[in-house]
């Protein structure tokens, strides 16, 4: 029943068969008066079918704004000012989410692309039972009776391994633990069987043992259902656990994208390398006699999105910087099999 489907889109040919989503040179700005915060400043990334792309970055890197741009859920005054977000619908047609009319976008949210957030409490309505919320979501997109929708909702809770699902349907969000609520959010997101799940820091607010449960669940669900996942996180440890492919963001740009093993084995951007060096590693950071060695932090701070340096945005903090870097912004270039780097000097790494 969904959308006004026109003739096969001319975009279809532009997206390889195995790609679900591709953002091309996406720019999202927050414009206040005459100042533009360039939160997303030319992001290019690719999510393959059935795989997990982890987008990793520190605060202010633009990773969350990228995901909100894809969902077209930007709060005022945020706006996509340039670029494409090509998405392959389940029927095979390709649409550009960046320019899709809001009406068609509504049919895509939830049914084609679903999203979960860091704090499940704020994304669940405290006044309704979780059963009601899942049922509402299902019936919004599919013509099912209340009874059928409830059965489906129960199946969804079982799918996300919530024990005593029938009883849980009638509980309110506040009666559940953080981990349970995140499971409910996942159930809610998956209830209309989306092809792509965007997960924005879904485990950041959770305890380590609960985080492990949720990551395990997401891995299993992906294997069983075959959905693609865009996983936003700041935690490189979590990336190593869940991702097939990784995009590293810095100051509004993807500076590196690579398969997960390649990225960790040999990062081809100085920022990625610097970030990895910041995380303590017992093997690396102990001298032979067991004494602690100092970490190697990245000097300085992340630049403000209101005032990005010209050229390479990482240049002011980069150990490999040369005069050239400060004048011209490097493009995202191949640096190995399936490996892209936005660095002039990636060969040195």
């Amino acid at each position: 029943m969904a959308a006004v489907l026109s003739a096969p889109s001319p975009l279809t040919a532009t997206l390889p068969e195995d790609v679900v989503l591709r953002a091309e040179d996406l720019h999202t700005h927050f414009i206040v008066g005459e100042r533009a915060a360039k939160s997303v400043d030319g992001v290019t990334l690719t999510v393959r079918r059935g795989e997990t792309l982890a987008v990793v970055g520190e605060s202010g890197s633009g990773k969350s704004v990228t995901s909100l741009s894809i969902m077209r859920l930007l709060a005022h005054p945020g706006r996509i000012v340039a670029g494409k977000i090509l998405y392959r619908m389940r029927d095979g047609t390709v649409v550009d989410l960046a320019t899709l009319p809001e009406k068609r976008m509504r049919a895509i949210r939830g049914k084609e692309i679903a999203m979960i957030f860091q704090e499940p409490m704020t994304s669940l309505n405290p006044l309704y039972t979780v059963g009601d919320q899942i049922m509402e979501m299902i019936r919004l997109h599919e013509p099912l009776s209340r009874h059928e929708a409830r059965r489906r909702a129960r199946q969804m809770l079982e799918l996300v391994e919530i024990p005593a699902a029938e009883k849980r349907l009638d509980q309110y969000p506040h009666e559940m633990s953080g981990g349970m609520r995140q499971r409910v959010m996942i159930a809610l997101a998956l209830s209309c069987n989306p092809a792509l799940l965007i997960a924005d820091e879904p485990t950041t607010a959770l305890d380590v043992t609960i985080q492990a449960q949720i990551l395990d669940l997401m891995r299993r669900l992906q294997r069983d259902i075959g959905m693609s996942i865009l996983f936003i996180t700041h935690n490189l440890g979590v990336v190593a656990e869940i991702a097939h492919e990784v995009a590293v963001m810095y100051a509004g740009r993807v500076v590196e994208q690579a398969p997960v093993e390649a990225l960790f084995a040999r990062p081809r951007h100085p920022y990625t390398k610097g970030l990895l060096a910041c995380i303590p590693n017992p093997e690396r950071d102990r001298a032979a006699d067991g004494a602690r060695l100092m970490l190697n932090p990245i000097p300085g701070n992340v630049p403000s999105v209101l005032n990005l340096p010209p050229g390479c945005t990482y240049a002011p903090r980069c150990p490999l910087v040369e005069p050239h870097c400060e004048g011209e912004a490097p493009g995202l270039v191949p640096a190995g099999p399936g490996h892209l780097s936005r660095c002039f000097r990636h060969e040195l790494l």
Binding site: S177, M180, Q213, V239, A240, A243, F264, L276
Partner: peptide, 25 residues
Amino acid sequence: KALLSTAPIPDPTVRRERVILQGDI
């Protein structure tokens, strides 16, 4: 043991026997 086995380590080549605890705290 469970805590150490599930703490995310930034190295995809580490294969650990994960002990994933059931249930909530």
